[in-house]
Design a protein around this nucleic acid. Sequence first.
DNA 1: AAAAGTCGTTGATAAAGATCAATTTGCGGA
DNA 2: TCCGCAAATTGATCTTTATCAACGACTTTT
Lengths: 246, 246
Amino acid sequence: MSDSAPPEVILDHRCSNCPVRHHAICAVLDNQSSHALSDIMVHKQLVPGQPLWSDKDEAHLFAIIVSGTVKLFKMLADGRQQIVGLLFPSDCLGRAYSETQQTFAEAVTNVELCCFPRQQFEHVLTQHPELEHALLEKTLTDLDNAREWMIALGRKTASEKIASFLQQMSRRSELTRCPNHRPTPDLPTFVLPLARAEIADYLGMTMETVSRNLTKLRVDGVIRLIDGQTVEICDADRLASLAEPQ
Amino acid sequence: MSDSAPPEVILDHRCSNCPVRHHAICAVLDNQSSHALSDIMVHKQLVPGQPLWSDKDEAHLFAIIVSGTVKLFKMLADGRQQIVGLLFPSDCLGRAYSETQQTFAEAVTNVELCCFPRQQFEHVLTQHPELEHALLEKTLTDLDNAREWMIALGRKTASEKIASFLQQMSRRSELTRCPNHRPTPDLPTFVLPLARAEIADYLGMTMETVSRNLTKLRVDGVIRLIDGQTVEICDADRLASLAEPQ
DNA sequence: AAAAGTCGTTGATAAAGATCAATTTGCGGA
DNA sequence: TCCGCAAATTGATCTTTATCAACGACTTTT
């Protein structure tokens, strides 16, 4: 159910030891400036399904994801849910410059966070324009990704959505994979962080339709389901043409 | 078809005369700093349907919308379209810090733009952290709005989408309406900037379904269609409960 | 003023996906 | 190892919305 290490107590939280040090927005700070952040930093561990906040909550927390996956989602009064963001290591979690959260946030796997009180983080932002710039670039990319997903939600068929999702997850796992430890000739393989019902909430459809379409891809030889959560892409070209016809 | 003035040649483009001066991101610059922008500013007029750029184009332009409506949209190879952003006066148009546009952009009505060469605009941004901050706040709001729309696209029914859209357009028109010129006791009325097919591309459905649902709201007495594009909200409460049940 | 478009509405039918229901699979604990 | 629960798959049916088609209301052209 989880693709991250079990929650061990990690004692050394110095930035110099941080696994996402070179990918997160804090990378732009020099050693001296990074104290401004490390002085207010608190580490936190979450277990799968653990909620972080609700949509009406006050935004008190800003964090960098060190390991694991977090989902951001919205909910209608009758319980219908839509995942509006999936966050991975080095991503930012929390809404700077807003008093309220606007989305729910919940750990999908075991998660390790590097947390800052929001207002203190904002104070550091105003004193370090290069950090604010990095946050702007990250936010612009988040917006690009949200828009890319909007055409999937609004205009793609169920099978196109599933193919797009698998492509996206495969691409994401490439980034995480240790580059010098890659048994070259095998096919791209990754663990789905989301359960079927969560995939459905991400794609705007039902669990059953997700399942049927995964089965179809398996039967057609496009993917292999090694276990329920582990996917091997057997035919990346065909997957790509299913994700965006033509 | 258009809710903005016909394209007259406006001679005076000084910032002090700008109608969106106090709402756009440039409002944060003091008089002296604003010269950095006004020195590289070029005004541009667009007519309805006029394309600004395509998704693969180089991002050479950054602009503030002075009047009119612009749509940002994505397209699949077979022609399916999804509007991923609607931009109104004081909104930013263009992707800072990216070489490519990623979306199509097209004038919906007559449009007046205050344009800057992107790279020169970025140069001003790096020299004026308060301007970059304003752009960050704007981008964070855009992301909030995109996520709000994602739950509509993924989880709302056709009638809920239409009701949400009308609410959103009504709210938007309140902002634009001159506050001291409001014949108080009448019902909220606004002009839809989008044609039926464009509303469909915004809501992720077909023109026919848009039309049927507008008719249903009219027959049920929730709205009145004064002409094809002008909508009067007769029962805002009922519209709200249709947009988000419960 | 007729003709030709374009846009929007309405109707009939089809298809995609949701819903409801029944198994099956996998996993943790006794 | 077996039991019990949760998650996933599969099947049957129903609903919503898309598609295909016709027509009416305006606009623009000639």
